[in-house]
Nucleic acid binder design. Structure first.
Lengths: 142, 142
DNA sequence: CGTGGTAATGAGAACCGTTATCGTTCTCGC
DNA sequence: GCGAGAACGATAACGGTTCTCATTACCACG
């Protein structure tokens, strides 16, 4: 969880992305985020931390990272995209409909179901996305 | 599948939406579509058919219909929303990654899995969305 | 150390899908 | 028919994202 700046730098290089100071700033800010953030939120936070990063750079970096599979892009807010630093393995997401908390589900186990459902309609499945919406433990307590 | 204009009118009334000529035009155009369409595509097609419908009306109608659950909104194209006339029951979608064909999957059967996965992380599941991406029979044949 | 070529960056304009505004037109119960 | 309220069309406004371009940082090579 607590990825060191050193680890972040390696994460970039490993994915064929040059580890520049700006990209590390963006990545570090993403690593601090429990749930997900929009590009504009990220930019505002960087500004508050005295980074001089431009909005365009934030967008460029996020686009690059999502292309390389380093970050996930969620479209659960109409119009606006949310970004999240996620594990590289296949996973799904659990969303809290009240506080917008995002949790990764590592255990998928749907492959057989997916293949069967696709086959029933003449498709060959290559990928699938699942989002579970619910209420998290904290929000239920209130 | 081949919904008559009469049926479309009823479909609107049944969902508490006044069946105006413009809304029927939009709905009929949607009914002609095998897969899904963007608002702008729909508007262009209506124009080509000598409808004088304004773009705003198309957006308003689609928003109204999706609110009432008459049409599904898919965000699988970055930025742009796609609309599709779908069954009222719970269902998922199968997408062809080549020709963008969209097929409804009526059989879900994931409820137990969803509840269990949510529970494992302290969530109470209220809803879930599944999208299977693959290659349809036609595209595989080529 | 210079130096030159390439990649990255910041500021702001441009873009584009969507929504709001507003004056006009239509609809429907009376 | 008539009047109140809903729907509509044209177009301006909005907001998130991408593009442009001049400037700056990086790095291999001399």
């Amino acid at each position: 969880m607590a990825a060191t700046p050193r680890g972040l730098s390696e994460l970039l290089e490993r994915n064929g992305v040059r580890a520049t100071p700006r990209r590390l700033e963006v990545l570090e800010e993403l690593a601090h985020e429990r749930d997900d953030v929009t590009a504009q939120q990220l930019w505002t936070r960087l500004r508050d931390r005295d980074s001089r990063a431009g909005l365009a750079t934030v967008y460029r970096t996020l686009a690059l990272l999502s292309e390389r599979g380093v970050v996930d892009v969620l479209s659960h807010h109409g119009g606006e995209q949310c970004y999240r630093l996620c594990g590289a393995e296949h996973h799904h997401h659990l969303l809290c409909e009240r506080c917008h908390r995002v949790v990764e589900i590592q255990e998928c186990g749907l492959d057989d179901w997916v293949v069967a459902a696709a086959d029933r309609h003449g498709f060959v499945a290559t990928d699938h996305r699942v989002e579970i919406v619910g209420v998290c433990a904290d929000c239920r307590r209130v």
